[in-house]
Structure formats: C-alpha cells, structure tokens
C-alpha cells in the first residue's frame, strides 16, 4: 500500500508546483468585480484544495 501513496504524494507536490507557478497563474490574473485581481481568491482556493487532498491521501484508510 506504500507505493500508491508515495506516488499520489509526488503527483500532489507536482500539481501544487504547477498551480503555484506562473503559466497557470497568469490565466487567473484577471480583474474581478471589485477591481482587483482574482489571483488571490484562486490561490487561496487551490491552497485549501491541496491541503484537503493531502489530508485525504495521508490519513486515508490505506495509510498503514
């Protein structure tokens, strides 16, 4: 059961790196209704989602 979890964590780390890096970020760097960039909201959302995924992978039933 160890190998799939390690693989998932590697994938998750890479996903985080991609989400937090410029090419994708530039897509979200658009003004919102309030005037400033939506980047902040997207970042916070991605961040929370990654934490949730990490919690699921790490605390999942096949953890041991």
């Amino acid at each position: 059961m160890k190998a799939p979890r390690q693989g998932r964590l590697v994938a998750l780390t890479l996903l985080a790196l991609v989400l937090f890096s410029p090419p994708l970020l530039l897509l979200f760097d658009r003004p919102t209704d309030y005037g400033f960039s939506s980047l902040a909201l997207v970042l916070y959302g991605c961040w929370a989602g990654l934490i949730l995924l990490a919690a699921i992978v790490l605390e999942g039933r096949d953890a041991d």
Binding site: P22, L26, D29, P31, G35, F36, S37, L39
Partner: peptide, 9 residues
C-alpha cells in the same frame, strides 16, 4: 488603481 493590486505585475 485597485486593478493593479494583487496581480502578478
């Protein structure tokens, strides 16, 4: 100039 805030620029 709020549209310039919190962007990558």
């Amino acid at each position: 100039n709020l549209e310039q805030h919190f962007g990558l620029d």
